[in-house]
Design a protein around this nucleic acid. Structure first.
Lengths: 219, 219
DNA sequence: AAAAATTTTTAAGCTTACTTAAAAATTAAT
DNA sequence: ATTAATTTTTAAGTAAGCTTAAAAATTTTT
């Protein structure tokens, strides 16, 4: 299958997994940087290939076949992220961009070799779970966005879910990294801003970023 | 530039480097598995982009810009070969196939990181020289095809230049590997068949293979 | 419940990278 | 040096993956 198809299916999966149900052609189009018309067109073609269900004006839904394809690509993406992160000194954003391209040109064989070499990791450097060779995610995710964290508590960063360069640069600069501990001191204006301390520095984040940073309670 | 363009330019370069001047559209078409018509079409388009010179019924010639592009892709291909060879236990043919895909989706940054990690190798696992970041090959090649080797002499395998699976399987089976020593015992029928010993086994190869195996004299 | 705003779909058109079939030119053979 | 064989080019057509603009449907606002 083509890169365009794989990215389309992946976008539907990602828009459907943690977020709400924003999988209408327009939403997918925005994510992929193409026109709504192109997305509608593509949706029809992929429906004919049994990768998704398409009904006029309705949300797009992946079929089992489509879900498997999405998981296969996401697995390769996250394995590349983990692999490049281990092998080379590159920024998370650069790693993400390379993975975004390499994922479409990677055989299952090579993906499995990478996984084996890395000791079959369960998470990539952003904290996103890596599906296994059967397209399953075996870890249970109890994390939630930082915007919903309670003041006074301590948390561990479990995911950084973005593909925005500025976001990653900000995270790198302030040591907001996967696995690191943070303490939330205050939530302002109905959780639109969050004050927290990381490595003894206090920073104030607004909603744009706190919805991208997922955390787990330190029980 | 697209994968099709990169492969086209690469094919011209490869057909022009050690072999003769078989760079007419038909030759390139055969190499790429497309029709002659498609190759002629492509040649015109790439001429318009100043990647090659096209004149009806003549050999295609890369411009300096085209040559640079070819070297850039070949560099990435060979770095991937060297990298995958070092990292994973995969057949030369599988490695070649992965490299063939990955080369088009690899940034200069990542290529340089791989080169650095490998200690800036001068050759890939087939013995082909790896161009540097400026698109130059600094090693001087004194090798020649086994078909032209003299009976009675000993040689070192310097290159295995093919992308045919059977060829690589044959080489692996008979320990015909880059750097290994062989002794030519006889040349038959105007060099159409070559008898040689490798690791104390005698084998008789025909021209199809002896033109793909390059060797250096052991002076 | 209309009217207004937004979104989705349809329609027409474009580029890339191919195809096949026929015409034109080159190359090889007698 | 013609003729025959081969190769290259031209011409017409296709599929994928987009675009913009207008029509149709849905959603939101009042």
């Amino acid at each position: 299958m083509s890169t365009a198809t794989e990215n389309f299916v992946k976008a539907i999966y990602n828009n459907n997994s943690h977020d709400a149900h924003n999988t209408k052609p327009g939403n997918i189009a925005k994510k992929l940087g193409i026109s709504s018309a192109a997305a509608t067109d593509m949706a029809k073609k992929l429906a004919a290939k049994d990768l998704l269900n398409y009904q006029k004006y309705q949300e797009l839904q992946l079929t089992e076949k489509g879900r498997k394809m999405a998981m296969n690509i996401i697995r390769k993406h996250r394995l590349w992220e983990a692999f490049l992160f281990k092998m080379f000194d590159m920024s998370l954003h650069d790693i993400h961009k390379e993975a975004e391209l390499l994922e479409h040109q990677t055989s299952d064989l090579l993906a499995n070799k990478m996984s084996e070499y890395l000791g079959h990791p369960k998470f990539d450097p952003h904290g996103d779970p890596i599906p296994n060779a059967h397209g399953e995610i075996t870890t249970t995710d109890t994390s939630f966005p930082l915007s919903q964290a309670a003041a006074g508590n301590t948390y561990i960063i479990s995911r950084l879910t973005s593909d925005d360069k500025e976001f990653f640069e900000f995270c790198a600069q302030h040591k907001l990294k996967y696995g690191h501990e943070i303490k939330v001191s205050k939530q302002f204006k109905n959780n639109k801003m969050t004050e927290l301390s990381v490595h003894n520095n206090t920073i104030l984040l607004n909603e744009d970023f706190t919805t991208l940073i997922y955390v787990n309670s330190t029980k």
